[in-house]
Structures are given as C-alpha cells and as structure tokens.
Design a protein around this nucleic acid. Structure first.
Lengths: 195, 195
DNA sequence: CAACATACGGAACCGCGTTCCGTTTACGCA
DNA sequence: TGCGTAAACGGAACGCGGTTCCGTATGTTG
C-alpha cells in the first residue's frame, strides 16, 4: 500500500484550499499565488508541492461546485416541463456559477498550456450532462440544431468572460438568446443565409 | 504650429507598424514586445516612444481594418435584401476579422487597464454602425430584441475568443445562432421562460 | 560646423508563475 | 524517550513579459 501522507501535509492542503477559496472571492481567480500563500501562512513552495500548477489549485477549489452542477442536470430533466426548459435552466445554473467567480470564465478560455486541466475538468464533468440534455431536447423535436455539446458549452463559457463591472453587458441575456436560437424554427421561418 | 517630427522618427514609426503586423500574423497578437522590436531592428525604448503601450501599437496596426469594417455597414444595408440580412452579413465580416487575427478577440476582452484603448477603438468605430443596422432591423420588425448594440458586439467578440486550433469549436456557427436568436419570434412560438 | 533638441538602444525594474535547495519537522523504531 | 531519516517546508532565485530610465547618437537649424 502507498505510505500515508504526513499529518501536517494533509492539514496544509486543506488550509490552502480554504485560503485560495477566500482569496478568489475577494481578489478574483487571477490572484497571485503569493497572495494565496500569504493568506494560508505558508511559503509558495508548499503550494507547488500540493498543486503542481496554479490551474490545479483552481480546479481543486471548484471541483465540488462543478460536480454539483453536473449532478443537477439529470434532476432538471426529470422536473422540467420539457427537455428544452431543462436545458435552459441547466445552462442558467452554469452561467450563474461562472459569473459569480471573478475571472473564472476568462481563465477558462486561456489557451495557456497549464490551464488545460481546468478546461479538462469542466469538460469531463459537464460535457456528458450537456450532451444528455441536448439529446433529450433533440428527441422531443424542440431543437433544430447542428450544435455539439462541446461547442455549446464553450460558447456559453465565452459569453460569460470578462463580465466584471460592466453593467452594460449581461451575459445571461446573451446566453438566453443563444439558447433560444437553438429552438426549432417554426414553419414559415425564412432563415436568411449568410453570404 | 507644432514642430515637425524628425525624419528618422517618422520612418521608424512605419517600420514598427510593418514589423508588428508581420509578427502578429506569425506569432499572434500576444507576441512579446521585444520580438516586435527585434523584427523592426530597433530597441524596445523606440516602440514605447511611439506607442505608449502595447495596446496602442495593436490599435494602430488594426485601425485601417476596423475602419473598413465600419464603412462596410451602411453599404451592406443598401445592398441587402433585408435589414436583418445586412446585419447578419456585417457581423460575419466582423467575425472574419476577429478570427483571422490570432488572439485578438481574447485580448479584446482582457480587463487590463492598458487595453482600454483597444476596446475603445473598436467601440468608437463599430458601435454606431452596429446600432444603425440594429435599428434598421428593428424598424422592419425582423428583430424582437431587447439587446443593445454594445451587448451584441461584445457577445460576438466573446464568442470569437480562443478559437486557435480548436477544430471542435466554430465561432461563426455560434454567432449565427445568436443572430438567429434575435429574429422575431413567429406566431405560435412558445418561448420557454427560464426559471 | 557647432549646438541643441529629438530620438535611440538596451540595461534595469517590477510582478508573476515556477523551480530549487538548504533547513525543519513528523514519524517509526530502538 | 531519543534518534535517524524521509517527507515537507520556506523563500530566495530564475525566466519571462511589459514598462521605464538614462546615457549616447543623430537629424536639424542657424
């Protein structure tokens, strides 16, 4: 069996998660690693022994909430009057999550190699759920779409980026518009082709 | 009258613009300032004397193209079968512009103070055009919208962020979806409210 | 051709993520 | 209980990017 981690190590890992969570809400997800270390009362080296990269720390902090979001999907599908309604509400949940974490959405789309993990976590957990909801809505004929779950998720994520303190921009409204765009075209609807 | 700039200064400014443009296409808009200086065969100091900030250099490089995009708006409105078609094509133009400049869209939404200028240029030139097209489409009843030109532009810009080498994500498709979502709901369309 | 303002180059600075290494400390065993 | 060792720690140091500063070079003007 693998040897136990030392007690202080386990304690520090939890301290770090708490410190990071706290710093993220006050200074945003972009907060410097040193700030988190300071808040936790440890050196930066300690952070990097527990979390190989800044992105991994972020992942660890938000894992619970991502899981919760993922689990809400099937539940909504049972409740909702229609599959499209469930999809819409689920996406609203997702948007709410992204929007309340300062800078999370922005960092999600950074193509920096070290953020692959973050991107990865979101995809791994949420993609199947999104796919399920999307399929259901397609099955009921509520959606006309050629869209893939991945594309939808990324699109929504992108729309939520950089919302900080711009009262002229309401990500929710745009996302709703996008989701509306997914709905089946009514007969007589003449979609104007683009060039 | 203000004294003439020195001849070498004017020459260098042009050299810098060319060098920057060239580096941007090969290394993306995120290319380090030093790379641009090297390509131009000047020191970094020279860049900063001509362009107070990295963002200002980017602005200068793309000003022409932004202008061209702005001017295309009214033209499309004259041509197009409908106002919504014109809007759709204009946005397609905008998307094409963003998507071909590696990382431009991403940098556009950075809330970093020094990128205000970039954001500003885009807004100043494109907002009126977008507003005009939007108004026209509202006037013809093709659009049901509560959306502001600003919000639309930002939404589109956001959708275009981080497109680099992700063949699973097609910004154009999502933007089209968004624009479709703007269209007037047909009678009998039961929009499912979100929570 | 001198004298001066203008422009230049690039070393230096700061903040950030990350790495490295000498020191400290928990834990198992005598 | 004391000791040896591996695990864990702290924080200085590194690389990189934007920006600033200042001594040097050069176009311009009389």
């Amino acid at each position: 069996m693998p040897p136990q981690k030392r007690a202080d190590a386990r304690r520090n890992e939890q301290t770090l998660l708490d410190a990071a969570a706290s710093v993220f809400v006050t200074s945003g997800v972009d907060a410097p690693v040193r700030d988190i270390a300071a808040q936790a009362g440890v050196g930066v080296g300690t952070i990097y022994r527990h979390f190989p990269t800044r992105a991994d720390l972020i992942v660890a902090v938000y894992r619970h909430q991502v899981d919760a979001c993922a689990e809400a999907g099937p539940a909504l599908l049972k409740e909702g009057p229609t599959a499209h309604a469930a999809l819409s509400r689920w996406i609203d949940l997702f948007v709410g999550f992204l929007v309340t974490k300062h800078g999370l959405a922005a960092v999600l789309q950074s193509d920096n190699a070290s953020f692959r993990n973050l991107h990865g976590l979101f995809l791994e957990r949420l993609l199947p759920v999104c796919a399920q909801l999307l399929d259901a809505a397609v099955a009921t004929g509520e959606i006309r779409t050629e869209i893939s779950p991945y594309e939808l998720l990324r699109g929504v994520g992108n729309l939520c980026a950089g919302v900080e303190g711009d009262e002229r921009y309401d990500a929710r409204r745009l996302v709703k518009l996008l989701v509306t765009g997914l709905r089946v075209a009514q007969p007589g609807d003449d979609v104007t082709p683009v060039a």
